[in-house]
Design a protein around this nucleic acid. Structure first.
Lengths: 116, 116
DNA sequence: CTGATGGTTAAGCACATCGTTAAGTATTGG
DNA sequence: CCAATACTTAACGATGTGCTTAACCATCAG
């Protein structure tokens, strides 16, 4: 099913928090346990747990428990759709900018300065 | 100038909503007025206005009012930082995946694969 | 001036988020 | 067994989000 829309919702929303982005960045270098991930932050461990849940629900990270230790890792292709969405929007936007500049060049000589 | 953190927060959170992404996608093709932007959606116009405010606060779009008509357009480089963040995280994550595969190859014989 | 058009503001409601503390469940080491 | 370790769950409060409706400007046409 092409439920891209809701997938992207949860991915972008998950990335809309500095703590979670830091966690993802950390995990992109190597896997880590819950307490390792929580260590750099000043918030409580349950708070970090909730962030990890959000990231896992968005499909950005995955985890498995061995004994009493849960280890998290990034999910390889998880950022692909988000990255492509941004790229796909940027492309026409830049074309739009080019057309705007071309239009201005046509209707006015190159303005060396702006005044208001 | 290194407010990257909070900037990215607002950009990613702004993108974490399908309506707002649709608006950005629409504007990436050409500028549009408030009512033009609101038309495709079933929600009320004030609701769309609020989405536009979020997008404008995140620096993704800009607007100007002429007479009684407000026109929105995308802000050219606005998605650059977000795109780069994703790219920067994906790169080490993929290296991590490569190392994992190499590790598995070392500890288990190459899986029987059909060559093409 | 008068009304229609295009947008804006205000208030309110349901629900989600982000943090807290307190208490509970498995493991593991001695 | 006992206690420390490593989470995990539950409950809750402060804010934030995403809508709604109602009312309020500010143009522009006639």
């Amino acid at each position: 099913m092409l439920n891209h829309q809701e997938d992207l919702d949860s991915v972008f929303r998950a990335l809309g928090d500095g703590t979670r982005r830091a966690i993802v960045a950390r995990l992109s270098r190597s896997a880590a346990t819950v307490s390792e991930l929580a260590a750099p932050f000043e918030m409580s461990l349950p708070a970090v747990l909730q962030h990890l849940k959000v990231l896992e629900a968005a499909g950005l990270v995955a985890s498995q428990k061995v004994g009493r230790v849960r280890t998290f890792r990034v999910v390889p292709g998880a950022l692909e759709d988000a990255g492509r969405w941004i790229a796909d929007v940027r492309t026409p936007a830049e074309r739009l900018l080019d057309r705007l500049e071309a239009h201005l060049d046509e209707h006015a000589p190159p303005p060396p300065e702006e005044s208001s």
